[in-house]
Amino acid sequence: MVHSIDPTLHLKMYEQMITIRSFEERAIELFEHNLIRGNIHPCIGQEAVSVGVCSPLRREDYMVNTHRGHGNCIAKGADLKRMMAELLGKSTGYCKGKGGSMHIADFEGGNLGANGIVGAGLPIAVGAGISIQIRGTDQVVACFFGDGAVNQGTFHESLNMAAIWKLPVIFVCENNQYALSTPIREAISVSRISDRALAYGIPGMTIDGNDVIEVYKQMKEAVERARTGKGPTLLDCVTYRFFGHFTGDPGRGITYRSREEMEEWMGRCPIKRFREYLFREKILTEETEKGILAKVKTSIEEAVQFAMESPFPLPEEATQDLFY
């Protein structure tokens, strides 16, 4: 890892990664206490992708998200309180309780929404890219999707369109190597997802998605290209989800992943690695870390408290918000 970003940003990124991890851990607890209904798809283990990708973005840049999207929301600057309230189905949530975990959007923060349909975000990102091009701004779009989405027709149509029009879209594959129970090697006909970029004549990179600085650097370059009209990039960030597919996955996915594999990947924890680096580089000290952890803990607890104390929406509100 080369020391190319300033220490303040490093610390901010570290704090965000911890925030994401804590948010997810707390959400799982609340789910287990039946305070969160439905299901959640935790992104524990993938924090480096969320933070590395969103750090080079500005607030006015867009982000398109997936079902496993809490981390990306947080990294894009979402308010933890409103997120947690949405998870609990409260009226103070981002979607007033209508969306839930899989459908959080924050249009003011450029977050165009998470999606319950695998592969559905890519065409939306293309649309945002066209809009940027027509309006003539220098915004960019970060489009997240999983390795499972790479075989959807929408992937193909979107990458082709973004390529022919040189749209400012960065296609970020959160390649955690499984689509639910299906390992990537059984589902995808190429060994590296980034090879698919060749079919669209755009740059494609496969990178270590558990190395936040690497993700940051590659993303920064892609953003640069996008802002200067050079078109889209495909970033394949190889990572691993520590948790199961969702909160109902038996044994955190042990039915389709070996224990050895899981342990090996947990050894490559992106937070642990970044922490070691920060200490080595003397950017982080015990003291500052304590401060960060305390701050994160407070903000998560405040979010939980806010969510718990918020009222549920009135039943009749169910019929509101359908049309403008």
């Binding site: 189905g89 949530g93 007033k96 209508k98 839930g100 549920f312 929406p313 039943p315 169910a318």
Partner: peptide, 16 residues
């Protein structure tokens, strides 16, 4: 059901 997408939050869903 009411003619709305199915909302997430339990009281809303029950209503719809």
């Amino acid at each position: 059901a009411y003619r709305v997408p199915i909302p997430f939050s339990p009281p809303l869903e029950r209503f719809v």
